[in-house]
């Protein structure tokens, strides 16, 4: 290995790490606010890529059907809950949020099938398509069991992942897709070839990390999210609704998943089930951040990307093994160094 190879590997590692950062941040965000380890996160990223590819060829993405089914289900669940509580006056609002809003992009895409849009429109459309998926899933699956134990929530999330990837197969078919590159630009930096796509991934990752930081520090909503993450009961006492913060967390996370899906679609071939491994690797990053710290999660995710890139050079057959074995020392260190500090569960 010489310096040039190391540099190329490092760049490659940082680029895939940047994708894991976006997904890892979303995972931490959802977990902090709702205590759900959202396993289907990667699936949403993959669905975005698949929708984008299908829009590129002027087809009707399978996401349309998925969103429609989820929207109808969520509306039914919400309506039943409202009728039971005799809160009829809130029905129109529920209809608007759970049925009309999610279906607007779906309907737009459905009726525009066959027309080919320009690249930015395609990206916005596919983002708008997948955006409602996580909040709708939250309404259907997680909200009724919001107070269950973390383990139960995790089990449900795993089941949800399998359901989603099954639906993915149904809606998108078994073949993989790869979209056109977002940019063809190639730069020569000190003798190294850097392609624009890689820079775009990096830039997007940095921009969204910055935006998230600003959001959490300087907006009331962001602060409410943080408050819920720190202490659900306390947040409720000062008038923050855990259900609405949950929805916002899912929306934000959906956006992060969507963006990582858009960024990754031109880099590799995405299948209906590709999301799981993406999510799992980001999860390693999130574990390094102990599922609470955003900056450490980001660092961890980049580390996973680098480790992956260098092991693929040295020992490609054992790449996955090495990446996931990283969890063992991290968990050991976590449990030894922070013994006794993670008793928040007991407070509630």
């Amino acid at each position: 290995m010489n310096g040039e190879i190391a540099a190329i590997l490092a760049m490659d590692g940082i680029a895939s790490g940047a994708i894991y950062v976006l997904i890892g941040l979303g995972l931490v965000l959802i977990f902090a606010v709702t205590r759900v380890i959202f396993v289907p996160f990667g699936d949403i990223a993959a669905f975005t890529a698949l929708s984008l590819a299908s829009l590129e060829t002027g087809g009707r993405p399978g996401t349309v059907g998925l969103v429609a089914v989820l929207a109808v289900l969520a509306t039914a669940v919400e309506a039943v809950a409202l009728v039971r509580n005799r809160a009829f006056h809130r029905l129109p609002r529920a209809l608007l949020f759970y049925l009309v809003l999610p279906l607007i992009p779906a309907a737009a895409v459905w009726f525009a099938a066959g027309t080919t849009f320009s690249m930015p429109v395609r990206i916005v459309l596919s983002l708008a398509l997948v955006l409602p998926i996580a909040p709708l899933l939250d309404r259907i699956v997680f909200r009724p069991i919001a107070d269950a134990s973390v383990l139960l929530l995790l089990t449900v999330a795993v089941a949800l992942h399998f359901a989603l990837s099954g639906l993915g197969l149904m809606f998108f078919g078994p073949e993989g897709v790869r979209t056109k590159p977002l940019t063809d630009a190639v730069f020569d930096v000190a003798g190294l070839i850097v392609n624009g796509q890689m820079l775009l991934i990096l830039a997007a990752s940095i921009v969204f990390c910055g935006l998230l930081f600003l959001y959490f520090e300087f907006t009331i909503q962001g602060k409410a999210l943080r408050a819920t993450a720190v202490n659900r009961v306390g947040a409720r006492l000062v008038g923050i609704r855990p259900t609405s913060t949950g929805t916002i967390a899912y929306l934000l996370a959906s956006l992060l998943a969507g963006i990582s899906g858009v960024l990754i679609a031109p880099v590799t071939t995405i299948f209906y089930d590709s999301g799981f491994l993406l999510g799992l690797k980001a999860f390693v990053g999130a574990i390094i951040g102990a599922m609470v710290s955003y900056p450490v999660t980001a660092l961890g995710a980049v580390m996973v990307g680098l480790l992956e890139s260098f092991t693929s050079f040295w020992l490609s057959a054992y790449k996955e093994v090495l990446v996931f074995s990283l969890l063992i020392p991290v968990l050991l260190w976590r449990s030894l160094a922070f013994a006794g500090t993670e008793e928040e569960e007991a407070e509630e």
């Binding site: 490659d12 693929s312 790449k319």
Partner: peptide, 12 residues
Amino acid sequence: RYVRTDTSVTGQ
């Protein structure tokens, strides 16, 4: 070696 879900084979 690489996995079907890999995003990059640059190292290999």
